[in-house]
Design a protein around this nucleic acid. Structure first.
Length: 647
RNA sequence: GCCGAUGUGGCUCAAUGGCAGAGCAGCUCAUUCGUAAUGAGCAGGUUGUCGGUUCGAUUCCGACCAUCGGCUCCA
């Protein structure tokens, strides 16, 4: 007998009992809901025989690991359906992901929407069949020969990587379908009550663009149909905020086929928001000790050879001239600002008394992104970033890093995106010798330093291996768009290498020459991307201080025009971006239009207002909030702008 | 760059191997109106571009361009 500690109880069982059997004994409700378990804190399959005293915790769909198990099983059901309908298909991998699951297949048939529908129908059959899911193990040799027998070459490759660990290889069987898998899985297929295949795309085997492109089917699954429905509605709602749609509808930006891909045109409204952000950022940076530079948009190839861009980033640059003709002058548009601001540092000899030296620049950059990568305002070929480089002594590094992070957080809070970001500590990949400059010693040292700073500042980061810049590690502040895709909004990087490339130094207090540490950073990110995320955040309804048009005076009839202009002048004199709508339309019509354009305030003026010197205030989202004296309203609104209120 | 989808007036969407149509927006006129759509009229298109098949292509085929969702890459 063994003792098993459960949630509120310790019970005795026969040796070899499984958590699934224990759950069944506890009650039908638990048995129905349980997805996986933790044995002594380790996630395990419900069919794991218990051989020693232990602690067992049951996981349901409400638990992160239970949810993963549930959706992982859904991906197996998909794979089974594919194998039934298209037996020649080879299986790659099929994990659960944040909002569902996917499965990668190698098939000669192109999966279309039609096929997805058929697969869904087949999956429903598999669920109805209530197939028991059973786990078994094979030796690596047997596992390989079994998989070779059925032509699952991708599985063979995966097993071979595990073979030298000396462990058995686990498999799961549901009906006729057998799948290499570490598990855990649900007890049977009937539990996957509600699912949907959402899309089919290409994906490289093992995420490597040198490998074959497979077909990836994405899906999601829930225990109840109502939960699936809610999720799909939520997705649809989120997509209504897509900046690429409403940003165009509301005339923030547009694109032109004759200008080219990744080169959006910022229309007056988009340009205005960016101008407001830019002024705010430059002023704030000045307050915090940053000095503005204006450096050239292009430079000779020689600069990029020193910085390493020529060897490590040439594909990403727009080159003017023949890069292969060493005889003739060759220029390139700048993809980053660093080497330019370093030249500013190099302008004269530097002393430790000059440090920290903080340079900021509203910097337009050009990157020749591959054609399939552009996306609205989020991923473009020309963008303007609140860029900065800071040179400091080793002793100053932590404080200065903190200073940069505080600035970034201040910006995020001010524009209202602080709650929506996550942190990624982007490190190099020691195995990737092509991408990075510097030695392992240099990388390890600077990553240790950065890790210590982040831990000290209690930043809750995830590590991203291979996400570093070619010259150093980064703290990336990540944000998701309405499709759930994550992008970097802000980045703060420590660069231990380029000071050496550029021979940057300072004279220390003891008279010796030393290399400065360099921090690369943005404070609000690049304006185009930040604008995109703001459009999505506010669904185009910008807070008063950022709204391109803040106030619109709406006269009821032509006889109120004079008074309307009088009010308008007062508003403009107070510094507001305001307009008046003098068209011969009914009030309701003008209001509807102002409302659709997401104006923060509409100021209606008619006989009553003209007589009393008031305005009737309609607030976006709230409707008519009553009459106010013009000056009272101006004071109220000015205050909101000054405080950068987000409502 | 790769996989897949899409491309018809500013927008939303019809239709068809044989004259491309509607609503909204725009313009004109009338209406002067109290918190999300007043009415009438007018104008607007080489159906993304270029090529091919065909008596005839917007429709079928191909290439390119652009847009969208992924992958890779990246702020």
């Amino acid at each position: 007998m063994i003792k098993v500690a459960l949630k509120n109880d310790v019970k005795e069982f026969e040796i070899g009992i499984t958590p699934l059997e224990i759950a069944k004994g506890i009650g039908a409700g638990l048995y129905k809901a349980v997805c996986a378990c933790k044995i002594d804190g380790v996630v395990a399959d419900l069919r794991t025989p218990l051989t020693n005293d232990c602690n067992v915790e049951f996981l349901t769909f409400e638990d992160e690991d239970g949810k993963k198990t549930f959706r992982h099983t859904a991906s197996h059901i998909l794979a089974q359906a594919v194998k039934r309908l298209y037996p020649k298909t080879k299986l790659a991998i099929g994990p659960s992901i944040e909002d569902g699951f996917y499965y990668d297949f190698d098939s000669e048939i192109t999966f279309t929407q039609d096929i997805l529908d058929k697969l869904e129908a087949e999956m429903k059959k598999i669920v109805k069949e209530e197939l028991q899911i059973e786990k078994f193990e094979l030796s690596p040799e047997d596992a390989i020969s079994e998989m070779e027998k059925i032509g699952e070459t991708y599985k063979v490759e995966l097993i071979k990587e595990h073979a030298d660990k000396g462990e058995n290889i686990s498999f799961y069987r549901q009906g006729e379908f057998v799948e290499l898998c570490a598990g855990p899985h649900l007890p049977d297929t009937s539990r996957v009550k509600a699912f949907k295949l959402t899309q089919c795309t290409g994906a490289y085997w093992r995420g490597d663009s040198n490998n074959k492109m497979l077909q990836r089917i994405y899906g999601t699954a829930f225990p109840k149909q109502s939960e699936l429905d809610d999720y799909l509605i939520m997705l649809e709602e989120a997509r209504k905020r897509d900046h690429n749609k409403i940003g165009r509808e509301l005339d923030f930006f547009t694109t032109s086929e004759v200008i080219g891909q990744g080169l959006p045109i910022l229309l007056p409204k988009g340009a205005r928001v960016i101008q407001l952000l830019q002024r705010f950022v430059e002023d704030e940076e000045q307050k915090r000790g940053w000095q503005l530079t204006k450096t050239p948009y292009m430079a000779k190839r020689e600069l990029y050879k020193i910085s390493g861009h020529w060897d490590h980033y040439l594909d990403g640059m727009f080159v003017l001239g023949d890069p292969n003709d060493e005889e003739k002058e060759c220029f390139a548009l700048r993809p980053m600002t660093c080497p330019f601001q370093y030249q500013a540092y190099l302008n004269r000899p530097r002393s430790y008394r000059d440090l920290p030296l903080r340079y900021n620049e509203t910097s337009t950059l050009f990157r020749n992104e591959s054609s399939g990568e552009m996306h609205g305002l989020i991923r473009v070929r020309q963008f303007t970033i609140s860029e900065g480089h800071l040179m400091c002594t080793p002793e100053q590094l932590e404080d200065e890093f903190k200073h940069c992070l505080e600035l970034a957080i201040f910006m995020l809070k001010t524009i209202g995106l602080y709650e929506d970001v996550s942190y990624r500590f982007s490190q190099w990949d020691p195995a990737d010798t092509e991408k990075y400059i510097g030695t392992p010693e240099q990388w390890n040292e600077v990553q240790d330093i950065m890790g210590r700073i982040l831990d000290h500042l209690e930043i809750p980061y995830k590590v991203g291996i291979g996400e570093a810049a070619f010259y150093g590690p980064k703290l990336d502040i990540q944000i998701k768009n309405v499709f759930g895709k994550e992008d970097t909004l802000i980045t703060i990087q420590i660069d231990p290498l380029l000071a050496e490339q550029f021979d940057m130094e300072y004279v220390a207090s003891d008279g010796t020459k030393k290399r400065p540490y360099i921090i690369h950073r943005t404070s609000i990110g690049c304006y185009e991307r930040t604008l995109a995320l703001l459009i999505e955040k506010y669904a185009g309804a910008f807070p008063l201080w950022l709204a391109p048009e803040q106030l619109r005076v709406i006269p009821i009839a032509d006889r109120h025009h004079d008074y309307a202009y009088e009010v308008l002048k007062k508003l403009k004199d107070a510094g507001f971006r305001a307009e008046v709508d003098t068209r011969s339309e009914k009030l309701g019509y003008k209001l509807r239009e102002a409302q659709l354009q997401k104006l923060p305030y509409m100021l209606v003026v008619g006989d009553k207002e003209a007589e009393e010197g008031t305005i009737s205030v309609r607030k976006r989202g709230e409707g008519d909030i009553g009459s106010q004296n013009v000056d009272t309203f101006i004071e109220y609104a000015l205050n909101k702008v000054k405080n950068k209120d987000l409502d």
